[in-house]
Amino acid sequence: MKRGHRLEDPRSIRKLWRGFLVLLALSVLAGALIDPKPHFAIEGWFGFHALYGFVACLVMIVGAKVLGWCLKKPDTYYARDGHDD
């Protein structure tokens, strides 16, 4: 506990990353082994969900960023001018 927790050790973080990537790969490969039973044609594509999840998140993050540029204010915004009264 003196110099940080073992979870904060850079080495274990690297290990965690590796484990995570392996998990990702496994989940995609597992997709090949099962019958996807698609509701829609698009679902049948190999690794569709993985790709879709990733891309959708990117789009949402970027979208939020764009919105943030327009609408972000310091968190003292309402308190500042006494609007909050």
Binding site: F20, S27, I34, G47, H49, G53, C57
Partner: peptide, 14 residues
């Protein structure tokens, strides 16, 4: 499996 794919890859995106 599909749900795991979806969630894990959004974790990756994060």
């Amino acid at each position: 499996v599909t749900q795991l794919q979806l969630l894990l890859f959004s974790g990756l995106a994060f």
